[in-house]
């Protein structure tokens, strides 16, 4: 546990150092208002990274989250056009339900057919994008077609923060409880930590993975509506490639790609790290290419660091290795 905590402390320190570095040249960036804006901008990534974290903890991966988000977003946008009177609460419910169903499809395929998760979700990712094309006929849903209530919800402020931020905060809190205080959360860690041992402990590995995908899908659906209403546009390719950002956030946050190790705080910090870089670089005047390169370097550094931290746990047999290390 102390290692995990240390890992998250180091990441939080890195984010603070990054902010301080930026502050020396652009003090406005670290003003409370701007930091809140950065957090709000990072909220969709935080939501999806949490879902991705749960899936990765069970030794799986969900590449279909961004496609799920885009399909749900398109569905809610088209519903809004067809039934402009539909209240936002109903839209939120529909979005979560749609995303949940898509997550359940992933989960069932991984569970019942025992297909590797990367293949299953690569397939469903493509299928979900294809369905968007079919229902929208490749057309965009633009801002003027959406109702004002539809667009207003994520921006609506409560105690100075937009709803989008509040949803992220509430979800983070709920996930903290889920992962540390429920049998499902514990089962997720056990399944990823040692699937064989989990079976012998009476945990149904397939069912637990199904639950993880369902959670990931529900979050993708929720984020689908928030994304489309925030940017006020829906089309086939929204959030294209975003699934890899969610994996990156989880991995930078110390979630082991081999499963079983990771925390809610880590995933959130990983997402915030990427969010700060994404928002700071244009301010500093560095090209988007460097943003990609820095994100990539952060992933490799994080994984290398975690692998090294994991290795020292082993028994040192050679005396010379002990002195060398």
């Amino acid at each position: 546990m102390s290692i995990l905590k240390a890992r998250e402390t180091i990441l939080a320190g890195a984010i603070l150092a990054l902010l301080l570095l930026i502050a020396t040249r652009f003090p406005a960036f670290v003003s409370p208002g701007n930091l809140a804006a950065v957090f709000n901008d990072t909220s969709p990534l935080i939501l999806l990274a949490l879902g991705q974290m749960v899936v990765i903890l069970t030794k799986c991966i969900d590449l279909s989250v961004a496609a799920n988000l885009a399909l749900t977003g398109m569905c809610t946008a088209m519903l809004n056009i067809a039934f402009p009177g539909l209240p936002v609460a109903a839209l939120l419910l529909i979005a979560v339900a749609l995303g949940t169903v898509m997550g359940m499809i992933n989960g069932l395929l991984v569970w019942k057919l025992d297909i590797p998760s990367i293949v299953v979700t690569l397939g469903t990712m493509t299928i979900f994008r294809g369905i968007i094309f079919l229902i929208s006929e490749g057309k965009w849903v633009n801002s003027h077609e959406m109702s004002d209530a539809f667009k207003a919800f994520p921006r609506a402020e409560l105690l100075g923060l937009p709803m989008l931020s509040w949803i992220a905060i509430v979800t983070v809190a709920a996930f903290f409880v889920l992962m540390t205080r429920t049998a499902l959360g514990r089962a997720v860690y056990a399944v990823g930590g040692n699937p064989n041992a989990a079976v012998y402990t009476g945990i149904d590995v397939g069912r637990t993975r199904f639950a993880a995908y369902t959670i990931s899908g529900a979050l993708a659906g929720l984020t689908g509506y928030l994304w489309v209403s925030r940017y006020a546009v829906a089309y086939v390719d929204i959030a294209g490639g975003f699934e890899l950002d969610t994996v990156a956030a989880a991995v930078i946050g110390g979630v082991s790609i081999a499963g079983g190790i990771g925390s809610v705080a880590g995933a959130v910090l990983g997402a915030l790290f990427l969010g700060v870089i994404k928002n700071a670089l244009p301010v500093v005047g560095i090209s988007p290419f460097w943003q990609l390169a820095i994100s990539g370097a952060a992933i490799i550094l994080a994984v290398a660091f975690n692998a090294k931290a994991g290795k020292t746990k082993g028994r040192i047999i050679l005396r010379k290795a002990e002195t060398a290390a």
């Binding site: 514990r186 860690y189 930590g193 040692n194 064989n196 041992a197 079976v199 402990t201 945990i203 190790i261």
Partner: peptide, 16 residues
């Protein structure tokens, strides 16, 4: 292989 989940704390292994 089949018994211990080494990444989890001791108490969580016992109560699983």
């Amino acid at each position: 292989h089949q018994g211990a989940i080494t990444a989890l704390p001791i108490f969580q292994n016992v109560t699983l």
